[in-house]
């Protein structure tokens, strides 16, 4: 179906899987050295929130849970905390996108920011249930805000690049 939603059509599963794999590898290698006042870029959350905003709650939940499962497998002692956090974040971002224009960069940027903070909050709540100190969540709150800022900046760059590429390919 073509029309107004052509630009923001949800991505296909192979490209989503590739994006998630690349994001996780980048996070565990190069991006781990980039910090802004304690906060670091969580590229996976950006992709999950972005995809959920365009594809809806159920697909967002599934994509988030699968990304979280991969992160849990590569992390230490997190159990299924990332899976739960990213899955619920995907679902909430998908539900939140119902109330905004799905092709608005500002709306999706806001969803990415909320998704980053929400994902961290759910993650640390789950970890505290698993025996980690309760204070870690509040200690990480200010880091989440900086991570959200980095996430929004990255999303705007990625969105602008993808829009430019689509427009260029479309004009040929």
């Amino acid at each position: 179906m073509s029309g107004i939603n052509e630009v923001d059509r949800p991505a296909h599963w192979p490209s989503l899987a590739l994006a998630a794999a690349l994001a996780i590898v980048l996070e565990s290698t190069w991006l781990s050295r980039l910090h802004l006042r304690g906060g670091s870029l969580d590229l996976v959350v950006v992709f999950v929130a972005w995809y959920a905003a365009t594809a809806g709650a159920s697909k967002g939940l599934l994509y988030g849970a699968l990304c979280g499962m991969a992160e849990d497998a590569l992390a230490v002692r997190t159990g299924a905390a990332h899976m739960l956090a990213l899955g619920l974040t995907g679902a909430v971002c998908g539900l939140g996108s119902r109330f905004v224009l799905p092709d608005s960069v500002f709306a999706i940027a806001g969803i990415v920011a909320v998704g980053t903070v929400l994902s961290d909050a759910i993650f640390w709540s789950t970890m505290s249930m698993g025996g980690f100190p309760d204070g870690l969540g509040s200690l990480h709150f200010h880091r989440s805000l900086w991570s959200a800022l980095l996430g929004v900046m990255t999303f705007v760059i990625l969105w602008s690049t993808s829009t430019w590429l689509r427009n260029r390919n479309g004009s040929r």
Binding site: I24, S28, S40, V44, A75, T78, H82
Partner: peptide, 14 residues
Amino acid sequence: VIGYDPTNALDTIT
């Protein structure tokens, strides 16, 4: 050292 925690939630290296 080939990697870090993907989410920086815990200070770990691989």
